[in-house]
């Protein structure tokens, strides 16, 4: 499983970037991107996103 940002709904508020305890999320060319090598799948980003942009993918 990996977590990916659905850029269709992401508003690029940046909240998950700050909160990610693994510092696995960055803003690249004004898009929010998760580095799956660093991601620990704690899913705090899934939990806090007001627009449900981070989603689990098989």
């Amino acid at each position: 499983m990996v977590i990916k940002i659905n850029t269709e709904v992401c508003t690029v508020c940046g909240g998950c970037i700050d909160i990610c305890p693994a510092t696995a999320i960055s803003m690249i060319n004004d898009n929010v991107v998760i580095d799956n090598d660093l991601c620990t799948e704690c899913k705090i980003c899934v939990k806090i996103c007001p627009v449900n942009a981070p989603a689990e993918e098989e």
């Binding site: 508003t11 806090i48 007001p50 627009v51």
Partner: peptide
């Protein structure tokens, strides 16, 4: 439009 914010 839609905007949002998260405050920890």
């Amino acid at each position: 439009g839609t905007i949002n914010c998260i405050v920890s």
